[in-house]
């Protein structure tokens, strides 16, 4: 495939077009995109994929601008996939990430793509995983994935990356009660942002809260979870972040956790994909047979119970 060569050469337009293909809802595009990904998978790069999640407005984009500037100044190549939360259900969306990533978006060593989330998968868009495969093949050292942290999305997002980072704001320690245990299962690093100006005290306190909560929930065989203080605006704490990321990666590689995670993630995505296909197939069958309205009417007329109807429809749909 010509596109494959161009991607591997790092041609910007080719990478962009390829991402469009993997994001497309058109069947023919999906077809090509599968072929493309199968090819690219054979030529893996060496990217480390890092996820940044956190509540709206906590400073994810600003942090990425700040941290990213630091990385490109160290000659790393950086790919960024920003899943923009600002989509509307009825209309299109305004993708405003670039207004927060002014400096790095100018840098020739970055590639920044925003995608409207469309409310699917709790914030992760269709094609994000594939897009990171494309950027990996194109030779980016780091791939950042920015997602808004709402409910389920962290789980999905954490299955896309090698290191998952939760960005929180000063004062968010109070919410710890709510997130408690689950938190330690998918996040590797906790970054308390806005450690500047009037917010400094509050930020330190929040970091301390996180540290103590995390040590409480730490499993015996697990690595210590890291809590870092940064200010995206003042660009402080950045070296610490990269040091921590590198440390975790090295340790994980050493202990085999790195590959194990990638393998687990593959299982996750295979399962998801199979579920998706089955689900859409079943939905198609359900509609074409028209069983639901038929049996629903019977239930309405008290000719059978709802459970009987469900059982009959299920059996009928699954046979074949």
């Amino acid at each position: 495939m010509e596109l494959v060569d161009k991607i591997i050469k790092g041609e910007r337009a080719a990478i962009a077009k390829a991402i469009t293909l993997v994001e497309s809802s058109k069947d023919t595009d999906q077809q090509i995109s599968r072929e493309l990904i199968s090819e690219l998978i054979k030529k893996p790069g060496k990217s480390i994929r890092v996820g940044f999640s956190g509540p709206p407005g906590v400073g994810k984009s600003t942090f990425i601008e700040s941290f990213g500037s630091y990385l490109v100044s160290q000659n790393y190549k950086l790919g960024i996939l920003a899943i923009d939360p600002s989509s509307q259900i009825t209309g299109g969306s305004i993708l405003g990430d670039k207004t927060r990533m002014v400096e790095i978006s100018k840098n020739p060593n970055t590639f920044i793509r925003s995608t409207p989330s469309r409310g699917t998968l709790g914030g992760i868009s269709m094609g994000t995983r594939e897009a990171s495969i494309i950027l990996d093949a194109a030779g980016y050292d780091f791939i950042f994935i920015e997602t808004v942290g709402v409910g389920q999305s962290e789980i999905v997002a954490s299955n896309l990356v090698d290191i998952f980072t939760l960005i929180v704001g000063p004062g968010s320690g109070d919410e710890l009660q709510g997130i408690k245990k689950g938190i330690t299962e998918y996040a590797d690093i906790f970054i308390v942002n806005k450690n500047d100006g009037e917010l400094k005290m509050e930020a330190s306190k929040t970091a301390a809260d996180y540290k103590s909560a995390l040590s409480y929930y730490k499993k015996l065989d697990e690595l210590e979870k890291q809590v870092l203080l940064v200010s995206a605006i003042e660009q402080t704490g950045m070296e610490e972040v990269i040091k921590t990321i590198n440390q975790i990666i090295d340790q994980n590689k050493l202990k085999g956790i790195f590959d194990k995670r990638r393998a687990d993630q593959l299982e996750y995505w295979i399962e998801e994909e199979v579920k998706n296909i089955i689900a859409s197939d079943i939905t198609k069958r359900l509609t074409s047979k028209g069983n639901i309205p038929k049996y629903s009417e019977k239930v309405m007329k008290n000719e059978m119970s709802m459970y009987e109807a469900v059982e009959t429809i299920t059996k009928d749909t699954l046979k074949q």
């Binding site: 209309g91 299109g92 969306s93 405003g96 925003s114 409207p116």
Partner: peptide
Amino acid sequence: SFADMGFDVDMGP
């Protein structure tokens, strides 16, 4: 307005 009509709009700085 374009977004309200259904476009995906990238806003530059």
